[in-house]
């Protein structure tokens, strides 16, 4: 009879705590009844037990019937979008890592094998991460979205008058917009993560010579988590756009919030002392791009020294524009 215990355990394990004991007793009674009918007062053989359990079906199905409803991590409504986003993220991540690999091979062709191994390792380590994060975001959306409409009874009786207006073409969000944005973010993210030292000025002199990096390689690793997190929330923003499909006040709210976080984080990062490469100018001189004291040198130096301010201003303008655009389009009836 140990097999019966196992069966009952397997079924009740998948059920809510409160019902387990009751159903366990009931199931045991049922199985004993079925066995009794099969063998009468004779001895119960292993074979009989197996047949009875087979008749009852797998514990999984049994538990499902007791539960009545199916449970989803990501339900059918979100599943298509989930697949799209996952594909986009994986493909653009692969592309980003591919680009990194190509650049590394150009910069340092001798170690191409090492670069290739690095490329494979990066793929293997980042694919599970990407899948995990995308799934987490969608699971959270599912959890809150699902609870709101069904379980709390907030769903009112439906009436045709409740149908929302077909969104003005100007309010609709073309699927291509968030998709392009996600591809862009993922590729840049991968770049930052795997070869931040290749973000810089590429010096060619007939053939490739060197890279004068923009960023401070010594301290960048401290900033890395913030940068990646920032990209991650921007990707979440694009996912929300993709899911909603049109500008709404709620979507606008999220957009504004995420953009604000973006402005704060970026401002904090790039105005810090250690973010930029402190030897950028001398690096350029050494590479022979500009000569000290010339007009060109002064121009580049001015741009370089003001770059922090320029980037912050561009970013703020861009993100504010994004929010304002959302606001205008969300208000269109």
């Amino acid at each position: 009879m140990e097999m019966v215990d196992r069966y009952i355990y397997a079924v009740t394990q998948k059920l809510p705590q409160s019902q387990r004991e009751d159903i366990a007793i009931e199931l045991r009674g049922l199985i004993e009844d079925m066995l009794e009918e099969r063998v009468g007062n004779g001895e119960i053989k292993q074979n009989d037990v197996e047949e009875v359990l087979l008749e009852l079906g797998s514990p999984k199905e049994m538990a499902q019937k007791y539960r009545g409803t199916k449970k989803y991590l990501i339900g059918p409504e979100l599943y298509d979008t989930f697949l799209i986003v996952l594909k986009i993220v994986l493909i653009s991540m692969g592309a980003g890592l591919g680009i990194v690999f190509v650049i590394q091979s150009i910069v340092n062709p001798v170690e191409i094998l090492d670069h290739f191994v690095g490329f494979i390792v990066a793929l293997v380590t980042s694919i599970p991460q990407a899948v995990g994060w995308v799934t987490l975001v969608f699971a959270i959306t599912e959890y809150y979205g699902g609870v709101k409409t069904k379980d709390l009874g907030l769903e009112k009786t439906w009436h045709p008058s409740m149908l929302s207006v077909v969104p003005d073409p100007k309010r609709r969000i073309k699927r291509s917009e968030p998709i392009v944005a996600i591809i862009f973010y993922v590729i840049v993210m991968v770049w930052f993560a795997f070869s931040s030292d290749f973000l810089g000025v590429y010096v060619f002199d007939g053939e490739f010579k060197e890279v004068v990096p923009f960023l401070n390689e010594d301290t960048f690793s401290q900033y890395m988590p913030f940068v990646l997190l920032l990209f991650a929330i921007f990707i979440v923003k694009e996912c929300l756009k993709l899911i909603t499909g049109k500008w709404t006040m709620k979507l606008m709210g999220y957009t504004v919030l995420i953009n604000l976080i973006g402005i704060v984080v970026v401002s904090y990062l790039i105005t810090g002392d250690n973010f930029w490469n402190p030897t950028f100018m001398s690096g350029l001189v050494q590479a022979g791009v500009v000569e000290e004291g010339t007009k060109g040198y002064n121009t580049v130096e001015t741009i370089w020294e003001n770059s922090t301010r320029i980037i912050v201003i561009l970013l703020i303008v861009g993100l504010i524009w994004d929010s304002v655009e959302g606001f205008i389009r969300a208000r269109k009836k």
């Binding site: 009931e26 199931l27 009674g29 049922l30 009844d33 079925m34 009918e37 008749e55 009852l56 079906g57 199905e61 049994m62 019937k65 007791y66 009545g68």
Partner: peptide, 24 residues
């Protein structure tokens, strides 16, 4: 009636129901 007596009863009257369906 208890579950299994119902299964037999319905079965005898030509309405077979699997216990796995009836109990839930």
């Amino acid at each position: 009636q208890y579950g299994y007596s119902l299964v037999t009863m319905l079965d005898e009257k030509g309405v077979p129901v699997e216990p796995g369906t009836l109990y839930p």
